[in-house]
Nucleic acid binder design. Structure first.
Lengths: 211, 211
DNA sequence: GTGTGTGAAAGTATTCACAGCC
DNA sequence: GGCTGTGAATACTTTCACACAC
């Protein structure tokens, strides 16, 4: 997984939690709260205060002893930690129901993710607007990637197409992929790859449901 | 998290991996492979052989030394481990693009998950078929849950509605929830709760992309 | 007094390495 | 010889507990 030296030392488990802290802080900020303690935040997100303090300590000292954290300040720091002080260009490959649902998700742009293109193999949908401008033919993928810097490719194709599509975006230099297709994609190239997988989620529930 | 005594000792990280092993095994089975070693399976799913052997060892001895694993046998054992030798009743709450995408996912029924109902608050979609028969009004949720044993509630509502909906299904006795709404849901009741969160996934990519 | 920041301790998870069986 | 199953070793993560700052 490509990452810089500073970030090599951050526990992998910490990173997704930072985004949860950020979301909760934005929520309490909108309710007018200006200061929050690690205990209050922990109660909100369902963890323990030491976890939060330890997670934050990897990045710096953001709190005031005896007081807690300034909400505005902590939001700004977390955004910096997460690389959200800039924008990232995103494409979605697969303009079916799932791809369209993701394209229409409004929180997307709000955090600096710019959806700049959407691709599909089905000639019936090419040119239609599925939430990200006209859907482009998948055959134009490499041409598009040459002319546009894409940071994240979200894959929502059928599973049969997903691995090939991922190989193509990685070969074209896209540095990260978020795969929703129900395959466990792999890549020999050093790409940042994350998988979201309904089938695994359901089976995990099944495991814990089974008595 | 509700689970029986046998399962208390299984590492939480093992469970999702079992489902990945199962999927990959089903794939190689369909290609006619009858025997597989932990090394071959590890190469396929991108992990290491010891991890697979250790994961399996929590449940029993399924392999043959010097040979490997019989694919058919291991698939059967994994299904048993994961509680997939029975069917589970599922409802989807929220019949937007995402809920519809999930309802149309075909791998769903194939692994024993029966989608028996779909709910929405919008009177314009009630009665329409979004992949799971006629969409029911959310006001009928409790009545439905009284008359039908539901094991898993998948929540794809807007975030403003999600926590309330989750509280309602949990109060009505649904033992597990898979939440796709961009909130970190919590529950005081002992419910099995899993979250799938686009925003967290994107921010995690952002973290590793940021140099 | 209150709550952060952080070493140290405890708890989990992964990987190693080899005895034992095919 | 080859590959599993597993205790031991290593690595990682969370939690504790307290010095220190406000």
């Amino acid at each position: 997984m490509a990452q810089n030296s500073k970030k090599l030392s951050i526990p992998a488990a910490t990173v997704p939690r930072l985004s949860q802290y950020l979301r909760k802080l934005q929520e309490v900020q909108s309710r007018g709260v200006t200061t929050i303690s690690s205990r209050q935040l922990a109660d909100e997100v369902g963890t323990n205060p030491a976890q939060i303090r330890k997670d934050l300590s990897y990045f710096g000292e953001f709190g005031i002893r005896g007081v807690g954290y300034d909400v505005d300040r902590l939001i700004a720091e977390l955004k910096k930690c997460l690389g959200l002080n800039r924008s990232w260009n995103v494409i979605i490959i697969g303009s079916g129901k799932l791809g369209t649902a993701l394209a229409l998700y409004r929180g997307f742009q709000r955090q600096g993710f710019n959806l700049i293109g959407m691709f599909d193999a089905d000639s019936n949908v090419i040119g239609k607007d599925r939430g990200a401008g006209a859907v482009l033919p998948i055959t134009d993928l490499e041409k598009f990637l040459t002319g546009n810097e894409v940071h994240i490719a979200i894959v929502t194709t059928p599973s049969a197409a997903a691995q090939t599509v991922i190989d193509r975006v990685v070969a074209a230099g896209v540095p990260s992929v978020l795969n929703f297709a129900p395959i466990r994609a792999t890549s020999s190239e050093p790409v940042i790859l994350r998988q979201v997988d309904l089938s695994t989620e359901l089976m995990t529930l099944s495991f814990y449901l089974d008595k």
